[in-house]
Design a protein around this nucleic acid. Structure first.
Length: 302
DNA sequence: ATGGTCGATCCTCGA
């Protein structure tokens, strides 16, 4: 059972590559984030592509921003859009969708970025993670049942290992001044706070284990590199995409890895055939997302 | 002369 999470940064723009990736990698369940489209658009443009490949799908989206989907070749049962955490105020954003696939309750999650510590969006981020906890506790009981929450958590769970070094100096040539500039890059502060980490810890305490962390407690494995300033080339990334699994699932983990090839910028692709392959029907090279797919394989049968 | 973020939308915002 191969479960994948991938923030595609716009499914309309990325569809050609998502299709290729599914064909090559044959995931059982693919959790997508940042589809940036309404459900009607998903049904019309994306769903038929997935169906052609033998996949069912469920989507919770909105215009321009956010949007999440579960794409599965092992069934989609009891789909649910948004939270069912007992609260009356619905989430204003389309950030979570649930489905049961091969007897595992699965959520595709896009946690709010937070923007800045003083911003209301940061409060929303922490509240959102609390709601995820409460929904899991209320409906899924991860201490007993097979549950997976996969997605872009916008939190670096482990200090240092899941971050870039904010003190490291990077050099880039500036064509305007014709000088080599040295600069450092601050971490996104909303991703590394003790409160954000405590929210992930609370999910862990509920029984939702960060399976990469369980297998590789001492290793780095970034999943996101910003588009700006050659971040991928300079290995300036963060580990913010996570597969959280309840114990019965987590203990069946066979492998977990990041597909770096899918994030490789055009300039760094050496195999020219690959560049041709990434061109869509109109002959336009489809750029990578700023996130790489995180692929988790479990020895799971229901 | 080089390159400079990207996507969705409507030009600026969010990441």
């Amino acid at each position: 059972m191969r479960i994948v999470t991938w923030n595609v940064a716009g499914l309309n723009a990325r569809l050609h590559r998502v299709k290729l990736w599914i064909e090559e990698n044959q995931p059982d369940v693919l959790c997508l984030q940042e589809t940036k489209m309404e459900d009607e658009v998903f049904q019309k443009k994306a769903q038929p592509v997935f169906e052609e490949l033998g996949y069912e799908s469920v989507h919770n989206g909105q215009k321009s921003w956010n949007g999440v989907a579960i794409v599965s070749k092992v069934g989609i049962e009891d789909p649910q859009k948004g939270f069912d955490d007992g609260r009356k105020d619905p989430d204003p954003d389309a950030r979570i969708v649930w489905a049961t696939c091969s007897n595992i309750r699965i959520a595709s999650c896009y946690i709010p970025n937070g923007r800045a510590l003083g911003d209301d969006h940061y409060k929303y981020k922490l509240d959102w993670l609390g709601r995820l906890h409460d929904d899991l506790k209320k409906n899924s009981d991860p201490s007993k049942n097979p549950v997976v929450a996969a997605g872009d958590f916008n939190v670096c769970p482990r200090p240092v290992l899941d971050e870039w070094d904010p003190k490291q100096e990077y050099t880039n040539f500036d064509w305007k001044t014709k000088k080599t500039l040295t600069e450092t890059f601050d971490l996104p502060e909303t991703h590394v706070t003790s409160d954000a980490r405590a929210a992930i810890k609370k999910l862990d305490d509920l029984g939702m284990k960060d399976v990469f962390c369980g297998r590789f407690p001492e290793e780095k494995a970034d999943t996101f590199w910003e588009y700006q300033k050659n971040a991928f080339r300079d290995k300036r990334g963060l580990r913010i995409d996570l597969v959280l699994a309840s114990d019965v699932v987590a203990k069946s983990l066979e492998s977990i890895e990041v597909d770096m090839r899918e994030r490789t910028p055009e300039k760094m692709i050496e195999n020219k055939d690959l560049i041709e392959k990434y061109k869509d029907a109109k002959g336009k090279f489809v750029k990578p997302s700023d996130h790489a797919p995180l692929v988790a394989s479990f020895n799971w049968s229901n």
